[in-house]
Simulated scan of single mutants.
Amino acid sequence: MARTFREDVDERILDRAAALFAQRGFAHTSLQSLADAVGLSKPGLLHHFPSKDALYQAAMNMWQVRGRALFDPVTELPLGPERDRQAVELLVDFALERPGLVALASRSITTLGSEEPDPAEGAGEFAFGVFGINPETDDPERVTRVLGMLGALAVLILAAHHLGDKTTWRRHIIATCLDTLGHRRPGLPSTDHVQVEA
């Protein structure tokens, strides 16, 4: 089903607001800074979303709804390289389309173990589930690889949006993510570097 113009505008508002929430945290993000980030007046923003809480909840809901629809088929696959590959490709495509939402979901990973309450906590658990890990009980190497891949993905998506052509960056981001997970794709050059002594 095609989205309406209003739905598309709301999605863009939510993505930009999510990026600001990810950068500053919920408590340190003002309604005025959100309005500025999305290019609306404060009353204009409130016309779309009645409060900062409603805006945040709508962004998290959009991540959950879109994420589940996107990743549910992947979670049916057995754990292993093929599931990881499909999950990475879907995640990269979604992140290139909606970088703010992915940054907000990543916040739950960067605040792991922190005393700061994290309303986005479910987003991190969802991402862990897609890759079949439990950070508290699973093999530390696998947990490290998945967390490293998610962190690298967040940074590379930001770089792709600010520095380059997203289409060109896509294959390099996917290759880096798969390398981080320990799955070298056939035909791709090695990213290993030889350190030269001075």
Rank of each mutant, 00 (worst) to 15 (best):
R12K: 00
V38C: 10
L104Y: 01
L46P: 01
F5M: 14
P117R: 13
E82N: 07
R83F: 12
D72C: 03
K166M: 07
D118H: 15
L96V: 13
F26P: 11
F94Y: 07
G122L: 08
D139V: 03
V146E: 01
F21C: 11
P78A: 12
E136W: 15
A127H: 06
D139A: 04
S41R: 02
D118M: 13
L181R: 12
G148A: 12
A54T: 05
G80M: 07
Y56C: 13
R98M: 04
K166P: 02
Q195D: 12
P43E: 10
L70T: 13
S51C: 02
T137D: 03
A87L: 10
E97R: 03
A127L: 14
G164H: 05
P99A: 10
F5L: 11
G122Y: 03
A19K: 10
G113I: 07
P99D: 08
Q86E: 14
A123C: 11
R98P: 05
A103V: 12
A19Y: 08
P117F: 05
D15L: 01
R6A: 02
R185H: 05
A35P: 07
D53Y: 08
L112H: 02
L55P: 03
L46I: 06
I109P: 01
R83Y: 03
V143D: 03
G164P: 06
G151V: 08
G132L: 00
F5P: 01
R6K: 15
H161N: 14
A87P: 05
F71H: 09
S30A: 04
Q64E: 09
T180A: 02
D118V: 14
C177L: 06
I173Y: 09
D165F: 05
N61G: 15
G187S: 01
E7R: 02
R6P: 00
S106P: 03
P119D: 09
D36Y: 07
T111H: 02
H183K: 00
I174E: 11
T110H: 12
I133P: 04
Q32N: 05
G113A: 08
M1F: 02
G44E: 10
E89N: 00
R16E: 01
G67E: 13
H47N: 11
T110F: 08
G151E: 07
P50C: 06
M1E: 14
A58T: 03
R170Q: 00
G113Q: 00
L153W: 12
V102R: 05
D53G: 08
G164F: 11
L153E: 00
T176I: 01
R107M: 07
V143Y: 11
D36P: 07
S190G: 12
T144R: 15
A175M: 05
P117C: 03
L112Q: 02
H48A: 10
H48N: 09
P43I: 12
D179F: 08
A175L: 14
G182K: 13
D8W: 08
L55I: 05
L20Y: 04
G148Y: 11
T144Y: 06
A22W: 13
I157D: 03
